[in-house]
Design a protein around this nucleic acid. Structure first.
Lengths: 225, 225
DNA sequence: CTTCAACAACGAGAATTTTCATTAAATGAA
DNA sequence: TTCATTTAATGAAAATTCTCGTTGTTGAAG
């Protein structure tokens, strides 16, 4: 799951990109219309953060093209104008959200997370990763069709990995996801180590492969190879 | 702590109001812009549930006025339009949440609870009930100035009682408050008995009076007499 | 005043979550 | 490479939360 940031002002762009990477997203950027188009043709992105005023063309045009070519990509529009007209224009053309500059990065984050969460939960309630299946409706997990008893925290952890497969998840973001509002940011997140260990043990014990790879210094990701 | 429901469709309004009263809230309503304004000038409400399309004026206007005049009141917007623009418009102007009709009452409940919980934690961070003091900033509780070690669930439970002193709280609403979204509605709520017992024991053991009165067949309330 | 049924209190223990101390592994610098 | 440092894994135990069976209470009906 990748995010493309299309923004010509380098300071803002760098801030957004490094912030998103810090959040555990895989993040690329484009500086103008042409670059953005090229990248969008080459890779699949879950979300495009799109500035409206771009060298080489209007962000609205890119949005229209994007929505025609690939409608599985979310779009968050950035604009220097707090014009209702612009806003409606953008949202009518299929953007998922609209943010006026200047904004706080935290605001951007929460909107990005909201878009991605919305896109993820659409579709079926069953997540499948090779022999592992997770069914939200029954809150059940099976490996090779055999049920695996998981505690709530383990279930949530596995779910988080399966939603974000191939993406690196930091201890911090995992803790935030597992504990919701109850998280104590002053504390350390070492208890995640234990949950990871327990989940891995239960998966392998029930005949599953350990797809949870450690990314040293970063976090973990669930992946095949 | 009172909630004002501003909604002109009488069926929906009645449903919301009786539902909220059932939840233990003190609840009033207004049918149009003018009535809403009058009530808001007269009484203090913790939360306004606000329909956007109102006879006599737009809910957005009321929201803007409300946020200018009294910014200690939470606002949850109801709208028949699932328009992102509306949503952003509302949230930008200071609403705390936004719900599109039609919705389940349970959805409304959990959002209302969330807003109220959030608002409670803002503001003055110390709650006092005779010899018992609860300080959010340090997540600490003292009885006669002596610290009392409480677990998170006990702390949240005591907090819930102190926020709602003299009001009867049902097992169900307590469970919902303690467990947030994690609540399993199919289950029974007997574990509340244990938390009540443990909290009472800790309070009396540390020299506090047991203000948590059992209301047979109803629930519990925290009160002096 | 009894009896009954629903509700609440309680203790004990099971399950889960979290902490902690120790060991192992990975990385970058010397 | 080796060393030092940071990061991760692990087992064990502490703390917390939840379940369950038993006992006690309450209020309504007879």
């Amino acid at each position: 799951m990748k995010i493309l940031v299309v923004e010509d002002e380098s300071d803002l762009r760098d801030a957004i990109v490094s912030n998103l990477i810090g959040q555990g997203y895989i993040c690329e950027f484009a500086e103008d219309y042409r670059q953005a188009e090229d990248k969008l043709l080459l890779y699949e992105y879950a979300l495009v953060v799109l500035d409206i005023q771009l060298p080489g063309g209007s962000g609205f045009d890119l949005l229209r093209w994007l929505k025609k070519e690939m409608n599985n990509t979310g779009v968050l529009i950035l604009s220097a104008f707090d014009s209702l007209d612009h806003k409606i224009n953008g949202l009518d053309r299929g953007a998922d959200d609209y943010l006026t500059k200047p904004f706080h990065l935290s605001e951007l984050n929460s909107r990005i997370n909201a878009i991605i969460r919305r896109r993820i939960y659409v579709g079926s309630s069953t997540l499948i990763f090779n022999e592992i299946e997770l069914n939200h409706e029954y809150r059940s997990v099976t490996i090779n069709r055999e049920p695996v008893p998981l505690t709530k925290k383990e279930y949530d952890l596995l779910n988080y990995f399966m939603i974000n497969k191939k993406r690196v998840l930091t201890k911090e973001s995992i803790a935030e996801h597992l504990c919701g509002d109850d998280i104590d940011l002053a504390n350390n997140f070492d208890f995640i180590y234990t949950h990871i260990k327990n989940l891995r043990q239960k998966i392998t014990k029930h005949g599953g492969e350990d797809y949870i790879k450690t990314v040293y210094g970063m976090g973990y990701k669930m992946t095949d190879r």
